[in-house]
Design a protein around this nucleic acid. Sequence first.
DNA 1: ACCTATGATGGGTACTCACCCACTAATTTC
DNA 2: GAAATTAGTGGGTGAGTACCCATCATAGGT
Lengths: 150, 150
Amino acid sequence: MIDPQASPPSLTALTTYLLSRTGKTARSRLAARFAERRLRLWHHAVLAALSDFGPHAQRELAVRLAVDPSDMAKILDELAEDGRVDRVRDSADRRRVTVTLTDAGRALLAELDAEAAAVQEAVLEPLTAQERAQLNALLSKVFTHLTGEA
Amino acid sequence: MIDPQASPPSLTALTTYLLSRTGKTARSRLAARFAERRLRLWHHAVLAALSDFGPHAQRELAVRLAVDPSDMAKILDELAEDGRVDRVRDSADRRRVTVTLTDAGRALLAELDAEAAAVQEAVLEPLTAQERAQLNALLSKVFTHLTGEA
DNA sequence: ACCTATGATGGGTACTCACCCACTAATTTC
DNA sequence: GAAATTAGTGGGTGAGTACCCATCATAGGT
């Protein structure tokens, strides 16, 4: 019987391969948890953006998260349906819709954050607190480099 | 104007978020390079597995790389069409097909490895050699933990 | 020899995801 | 005030992916 887990060493030697694989499992694990609530990762990102930056016009949200405005509308539909966000027409510019986080939205965000933390705990389990800090610092460098160069 | 690069801090604080994002860009960059050759990442993985472990029966390859046997057949179709692998019926068990890397396959693998190295160089550019070694060691721990627990 | 199990293959399906176009309403420009 | 621009929305499309099933040839068990 062949061990399915044994990936080719010439691949596991690549840091980007490890990055890709571990990132993928982390994302899919969280996505699976969210799916039980009929939510996707974008819902979490939108709630987080609203919490971090305050109310947004829809288009601003879409630009910030690099999502198609049309898709953002659909995501907000679902969040608004459950009362997680409020959408109110801007009285100054009646084309715009200002999106605000509701209390229910804040509550949901806290739950989703907890889910994310739980997944992270499971993924980073073999690392000490020091190593986790190291990893985060290294990845932050890479991330800002990647997002900054585009 | 809103900066599209500015992700919510509460997300970038999550190591798994950074893991997911950086892994995704690394993978998609390499996939884009491979696509120019009409290849996908699986082609690289298959060639690497054949190089690292030697000839395989098709099913063994599929199990090892966790790919559906049906999909493996299609991948090998494409590699065989360009003469990158040889597929010969096993004379002992004529159901099995033994897949072997050809010289042309080895040559292609070298090129794909170079592409992967180039992408990795671009992604990890801001890190020193020491930091890269650290990152690789940390990710290796996480990776073996994740693949081992399933 | 018969029955069951296995390897390879072809074909098709379901699902996600990013993307794009058309349309309406409202605003700005000239 | 007519024309051009912008915000939001609905609808649809195409690529990519992971499955799943049916089939055929071959082996192995009894």
